[in-house]
């Protein structure tokens, strides 16, 4: 990073994936479809590539951005994720770009205050709704998952009626379904 840059607590990698509709997710084709886009370690580096990135709302259906700490693959099976889980927030169309930005700024700025628990965040563009999620290492720790939920509510400024769901990755592996 350049001298004078504002270093982030962690180095992050952005990944992109797109699934052909109707093609059921399996770990092998998921791994083939996911592409590394960029890695950054400072606030300046983040903004310099983010400015050129297509906004989530402008992506075609079945696309995902995955922003994870460097060294953590955005897969359930990764060592950092395998006993973890995620908070899932379903959004009506049109909100994903703004809320995704709020979420990742909170993550990069270490606003969640849960030590090293956060693994990454995902925005999923789908046909009828969009979904954002934040992944953490320990699905069984209620104190941590509650704190993540409360910060998520605050930074997204969600309407009270928004339904949030926590799902352990072991359950996603069992039913082979992410949401």
């Amino acid at each position: 990073i350049n001298p004078g840059d504002h270093k982030l607590q962690f180095v992050y990698t952005l990944w992109f994936s797109r699934r052909s509709p109707g093609n059921k997710a399996s770990s092998s084709n998921y791994e083939d479809n996911i592409k590394m886009v960029a890695t950054f370690a400072s606030v300046e580096q983040f903004w310099s590539f983010y400015s050129f990135l297509t906004r989530p709302c402008d992506l075609t259906s079945s696309s995902d951005y995955h922003l994870f700490k460097q060294g953590i693959k955005p897969m359930w099976e990764d060592d950092a994720n395998k006993t973890g889980g995620k908070w899932i927030v379903r959004l009506r169309k049109g909100l994903a770009s703004r809320l995704w930005e709020n979420l990742i700024l909170a993550m990069l700025g270490e606003q969640f205050m849960v030590g090293d628990e956060i693994c990454g965040a995902v925005v999923s563009i789908r046909f009828a709704e969009d979904i954002i999620s934040i992944w953490n290492r320990t699905a069984s720790d209620r104190t941590i998952t509650s704190r993540i939920r409360d910060t998520l509510k605050r930074v997204l400024n969600l309407p009270l009626s928004t339904i949030m769901e926590y799902k352990a990755h072991t359950d996603s592996i069992k039913d082979q379904s992410s949401f």
């Binding site: 504002h6 607590q9 606030v43 983040f46 903004w47 310099s48 700024l105 909170a106 700025g109």
Partner: peptide, 21 residues
């Protein structure tokens, strides 16, 4: 150790910094 914490407002200001262009 200490953690590097950034508030949203600060990060938004940094968006327009010449170093981030």
């Amino acid at each position: 150790g200490t953690r590097i914490i950034y508030e949203r407002n600060f990060l938004m200001q940094m968006r327009n910094s010449p170093l981030a262009q």
